[in-house]
């Protein structure tokens, strides 16, 4: 893995943000809007449901963490789509750039986006609702770390599918993550799901993070078991998805579709 090739690709993506309002909006505007709308809904519900303790804390905390996962996934998939839209994949893969370096660059972009979104949402939540995301204490770090990796898992999966099935599959870049949302138990506890769905949700690392988060916020104890599950599942799934990406890349080169994928 050569750092200069990864940094070249990161620079290429950062150049885009210099003069592209839609791309800047993607980082700042949508997360901000999400927070405003869901923040007011949360305040409204909290007013009429005072029997649910810590309503605002649960809801806003979950919303911010979910957005981190979403932006982490987008960082990977949109970076790939940018190359597809620019019909630049041929230039990249006829250069010494390896698929691993390409993935590393998209992961770097994912970290960049998550950092920007976290700062924006954290500050806005504090300013508008007096909500301090740091209320989770040091547990916030492993929560975020695991959610970012789950975002990479979904991002690499989505990228592989778009590479395999072409531009007509690009809608997956925005929709795939929402397939995981119901079983991520973002806004409700795992035990409200039907028993058969609980088994599936248990295999989703994000569900463990949100369960752990609720445990910490309600003072219900250490989230270590959930974090161990999340970490283990994330490690296994990330390895599987990277293997899938390499397999799909080889398939596209065999079928000649790598040079046609953006057409």
């Amino acid at each position: 893995m050569k750092f200069h090739r990864v940094s070249a690709l990161v620079a290429r993506h950062l150049y885009l943000y210099r003069r592209s309002l839609p791309r800047i909006m993607e980082i700042f505007y949508w997360p901000f809007l999400d927070l405003v709308i869901w923040g007011f809904i949360t305040l409204y519900l909290a007013k009429y449901q005072p029997q649910v303790p810590g309503f605002v804390t649960f809801f806003l905390g979950a919303l911010i963490l979910w957005d981190m996962l979403f932006r982490s996934q987008q960082g990977i998939t949109i970076s790939f789509l940018e190359e597809l839209w620019a019909r630049n994949l041929m230039n990249l893969f006829a250069s010494p750039l390896t698929p691993g370096e390409f993935l590393a660059a998209t992961i770097a972009m994912s970290i960049f986006k998550v950092t920007c979104v976290s700062v924006v949402m954290g500050i806005c939540a504090w300013l508008f609702y007096g909500y301090n995301v740091l209320v989770m204490g040091l547990w916030l770090l492993p929560f975020v770390f695991n959610l970012v990796i789950t975002g990479w898992v979904i991002g690499v999966l989505t990228t592989s599918l778009i590479m395999r099935f072409g531009q007509e599959a690009e809608i997956l870049a925005w929709s795939m993550v929402f397939l995981f949302q119901p079983i991520s138990c973002v806004f409700y506890p795992l035990d409200v799901l039907p028993a058969w769905l609980q088994g599936i949700a248990w295999m989703n690392p994000a569900a463990h993070v949100f369960e752990g988060m609720r445990g910490v916020l309600s003072g219900g104890g250490s989230p270590v078991v959930h974090l161990a599950w999340a970490g283990g599942l994330n490690g296994a799934l990330l390895i599987a998805m990277i293997a899938l990406f390499y397999k799909t890349f080889a398939y596209c080169k065999r079928e000649g579709s790598l040079v046609r994928v953006g057409e």
């Binding site: 090739r5 690709l9 620079a11 290429r12 150049y15 885009l16 620019a86 019909r87 230039n91 250069s95």
Partner: peptide, 21 residues
Amino acid sequence: ISMPMALTVEENLWVVARLYG
């Protein structure tokens, strides 16, 4: 072939130069 359309000519050349070390 094409090059990234939202970059300037110079930016595109810089990215290529970096890519090849």
